[in-house]
Simulated scan of single mutants.
Amino acid sequence: MVADLGASDVFGPATCPRLIVKVGSALLVAPDGQARREWLASLVADIAGRVAAGQQVVIVSSGAIALGARRLGLPKGGRASLEDAQAAAATGQIALSSIWAELLGAHGLTAAQLLVTLDDLEDRRRYLNVSATLGRLLTLGVVPVVNENDSVATEEIRFGDNDRLAARVGAAARANGVVLLSDIDGLYDSNPHGNPDARLIPHVAQIDADIMAMADTRSSSGMGSGGMVSKIEAARIATAAGANLAIATGRIDHPLAQFGETGHGTVFATAGNAPARKAWLSGGLTDRGSIRIDAGAARALSSGRSLLPAGAIEVAGDFSRGDLVRIIDAEGRAIARGLAEYDAGEAARIVGRRSDELADLLGYAPRSALVHRNHMALL
């Protein structure tokens, strides 16, 4: 589903006081492993112009592994093994942060570095700490530079791409907009590298099945870790948190200024601001299990009701009370995320049961819902 929105309408300083700018590895690092300093200088000039106009900017920057791999002489760009990637990230992050600090400093701007893991943004308390740090830095006029802490991340516990990281950082920062500068200039109705007649989709009002069908999991550069699927997932996270998200080309000098002037790219429109807790819940990337529900329960959730045991069909996973769980409909589509009021074993015992049966089944006075509406976000 498409909407008629332009870049200047939704990403200008007046309408977007707080902006996240994500820079991919293929833009920041040349194939020989060197930083593309001239291009970066043009982007930093754009960012400085935004800050001067009153906009607060957070940079989400890839590139540490690529830069570190060159310095260490590691094969396959540092991605031959998890250990190589961790070593390359630890080495390259110093170089990456110094480049950003130097270029921003040339415009009188102070840079700050934040390295985060998936757990930092999935755990509620740590997420709030990140949010508070970002908020304070921005009010001080600092430009935070955020990256995943790949030196300690593992294959099981990591974002894996900075598209979704940028969207989650946007939610934590309560940003109004996210711009993904990429090696592709937007969402196409088919892969533009294989189909010269592929059509750019300029505006998306709702991420539905038709939009998901346009995604391609491959990155055109081979250097980055994200494809169009990760960008659409990032758009889902950002728009649910109340931020518009754009995919725009970074294959030109002054890419942020050019995007603002031409609007060339794809803009995913938000339906409006979401409460902070709901934004955190809806943007969650990990869960401990799932609860399958019937059609009647799905309708009740869509009207703002809690999930009661009577509407549940099946419980899967090993979760405890307070863990994030995915709520899926009878066809297996995820329709909500929320915090479980019961552990998995107890939840399985009361699936499909009426409220007046629960005390006898559990042996204690039951809680009112499997997942309460106050601790749930619809997707």
Rank of each mutant, 00 (worst) to 15 (best):
S230Q: 00
R158P: 01
A238W: 07
A41V: 04
L358D: 04
R292A: 15
R168N: 09
S8E: 13
G33I: 09
Y188M: 04
M228T: 02
D150N: 05
D84C: 08
G265Q: 02
R353S: 11
A26L: 06
P192C: 05
V315R: 02
V169F: 11
R367Q: 14
R321E: 14
L256A: 07
A246P: 04
T262G: 01
G263V: 01
L137D: 03
D356Y: 12
G141D: 07
A175Y: 13
L200G: 12
I59V: 15
L128S: 10
V44T: 09
Q206I: 07
R292N: 07
G242Y: 11
E122K: 00
G63L: 07
R337M: 12
S290K: 14
G49L: 00
I313R: 09
N149S: 03
A205H: 08
A53D: 14
H372I: 15
Q258L: 02
S97I: 12
L19H: 10
S355A: 12
L324I: 12
S61G: 09
H203K: 06
Q86K: 02
A279S: 13
L200S: 10
L118N: 01
F159N: 01
L72I: 05
G338K: 10
L28T: 09
S62P: 13
A66I: 03
R277A: 08
A205Y: 03
S368Y: 12
G338N: 12
R337A: 11
A369M: 10
I59G: 11
A175N: 13
G304V: 06
A41I: 01
I47N: 04
I327S: 07
R174G: 15
G222Y: 13
G352R: 03
D343Q: 11
A240Y: 02
P13A: 10
I201Y: 05
A53H: 13
S61A: 10
T110I: 15
A66P: 06
R126W: 00
P144G: 14
E233V: 00
A205N: 08
S220T: 12
I207E: 02
G226H: 00
A166S: 15
